[in-house]
Design a protein around this nucleic acid. Structure first.
Lengths: 344, 344
DNA sequence: CTGAAAGCGCTTACAG
DNA sequence: CTGAAAGCGCTTACAG
């Protein structure tokens, strides 16, 4: 079943069938009706490969995940981002295509593009001065970053307000009377870690407090590192810990309970991401609208591919206070749950 | 940069360049060396779109997610499945392509295949007598199912032993002296729910117990439904609850605590999936090797596409007992955590 | 408004 | 072992 069959059966040329599909306004009403009737009847669908070869557009958005940061697959963050991306891609007739690479192996991007597999990329898990950004820019490959790395080149991004979110969380802890705040942050090279550190710093500055460098820790966004670094933080006599991810905070909760400390009673903690399990664990957290960020990223990338001018966007975060903070609102989780259900 | 450029620069025909790439054994050593040198030097990569058009193979594996079961995006199950699929696809030079559909909207599959976007499908979230299976079979589209639905046609699948997993969990609860067991199961139409129910039934039968139908509940795999159905179960005076998913169990824990019941002390519960948060919540669970199932599914599909004969596979599950069961092993979670870390 | 024809970048059957 | 040529299924500039 190909365009020639449709042409033959509707008594027109293949050019006309193609126009009915791609530029219907160029075709006389009656011809169009005739052709569409045949297309409908035979359930014809144009071969996108042939179309791609002609138009030099693939209709695919690429996403490359480093296998080393493999844990991103397991985080709810990933699923929600995917959901947002797919929803919008679909709406515009695009598809999401997946690949993995090693570390910031720049060649995977170039290769996918040169092979004509994708029209552009959504870049995640980004480092400051990420070599991928330089490459994509140099090769003039369309891309949108989820995040805001330092860079020598201009780029388009969709990001949440990591600095603001951490600022508010830090400020909240200070206002509730905490004296020795630790920050258990993500890998230093990642731009998201820098932003969160900036927020932490700014809040301290606004309250004329100085940051004790030994209270700022760095690790992977894993339960393991949350556990390990919390143990280290406890040796420094902290009374509050800010985690750069709920998963890290989960590991932290274990370390705390191990040490006989109950979050919200003996020590205060706040996470980041507000993953579903946090509600159950009564963990306070900074919520970011991941699905919407994914939607925005897809929208920006598609517009960029289609030659429109686009503008980056930052999404606000929301501080969710639960029992894990001493002197916090102490909303009971079941109440929150019931409210949640009532709202739906 | 195209094959013609390589041909010109190496002083051979495009046919020869193509052979170097696709059938190197057909080319004389010296010619091959010459051509490869040029390819290397210019960083040439063949256009896969043109190749696809010629070979009628796309190199893409399709996965269609129903937007209604949108929550699959948020579950760790999804990420791990993706990870397994991508790993193997990559290894064989394939890519994963994504799409969404409404309910079991069969046409999305047909369309993606007819448009020549994918060579075959991984089908998830499958119902008994799923119309998608009938369609894919009828259209002779290669596909592998993650799950084992009832069906009038033969198919290839990769699945975990859901029946066995539930059987062991049920049996464990019975052996620990529980009398009134509730099963909070997933949607009845889904094949996975049927398998889990069968395991529940079989364990009762082996202990010459009868199942009280009013103790078997059905709902979505969500925290909300876990919460709601647990409330209903409590009215029936149960002393143990088996959940068909940890996320449901999380909702259940809330409902139990709401009623002043602590899992492992006043009532026993076991979940399914063993998601990361379960360890922290001391929730017992049936673990399935999702990433390996994904790997197997990709492997089967690729072999099938390439014309090999393949065999379905069932993966064993593992019962993980934590504090949530009365009389269970009562492993302390921090011990488990430390062991975990030690192993890495 | 419509058609004939060229061409997108490959692969492979055929001939030598 | 290698080359010339046909053809995969489309789209679009050109001509009418």
């Amino acid at each position: 079943m190909k365009i020639r069959d449709i042409a033959r059966l509707s008594g027109v040329s293949v050019a006309t069938v193609s126009r009915v599909l791609n530029h219907p306004q160029m075709v006389r009403e009656e011809t169009k009706r005739k052709v569409l009737e045949v297309i409908e009847r035979l359930g014809y669908e144009p071969n996108v490969v042939a179309r791609s070869l002609r138009t030099r557009k693939t209709g695919n958005l690429g996403m490359v995940i480093s296998v080393e940061s493999g844990s991103i697959f397991e985080s709810p963050y990933f699923g929600l981002l995917m959901k947002g991306l797919t929803t919008i891609a679909e709406k515009h007739g695009y598809h999401l295509i997946f690949s993995t690479c090693h570390l910031s192996d720049v060649s995977a991007y170039k290769s996918l593009f040169k092979k004509s597999l994708v029209d552009g990329f959504v870049v995640v898990d980004v480092l400051d001065f990420d070599p991928r950004i330089a490459l994509l820019k140099k090769e003039e490959i369309p891309f949108v970053i989820v995040g805001r790395p330092m860079s020598n080149v201009e780029y388009i991004y969709a990001d949440s307000d990591n600095e603001g979110g951490t600022y508010r969380a830090t400020r909240y802890l200070i206002e509730k009377g905490h004296k020795r705040l630790a920050l258990i942050n993500g890998p230093k090279r990642m731009s998201v870690s820098r932003h969160r550190f900036e927020g932490f710093k700014k809040a301290h500055k606004d309250f004329r407090r100085s940051i004790e460098p030994s209270l700022v820790f760095e690790g992977k966004f894993t339960e393991e590192d949350g556990y390990r670094l919390t143990k280290m933080a406890l040796e420094k006599n902290v009374d509050a810990i800010l985690y750069s991810g709920d998963v890290m905070a989960f590991g932290g909760i274990k370390a705390l309970r191990n040490a006989g400390l109950e979050p919200g009673r003996d020590i205060s903690i706040i996470g980041f991401d507000d993953v579903p399990a946090s509600k159950l664990l009564e963990l306070s957290s900074v919520r970011q609208p991941v699905e919407n960020i994914g939607k925005k990223a897809a929208e920006l990338l598609i517009k960029m591919i289609e030659g429109e001018r686009v503008h980056s966007k930052v999404f606000p975060t929301e501080l969710i206070i639960r029992k894990s903070v001493r002197g916090g609102e102490n909303e009971s989780p079941q109440k929150e749950l019931d409210n949640d259900f009532a709202r739906r």
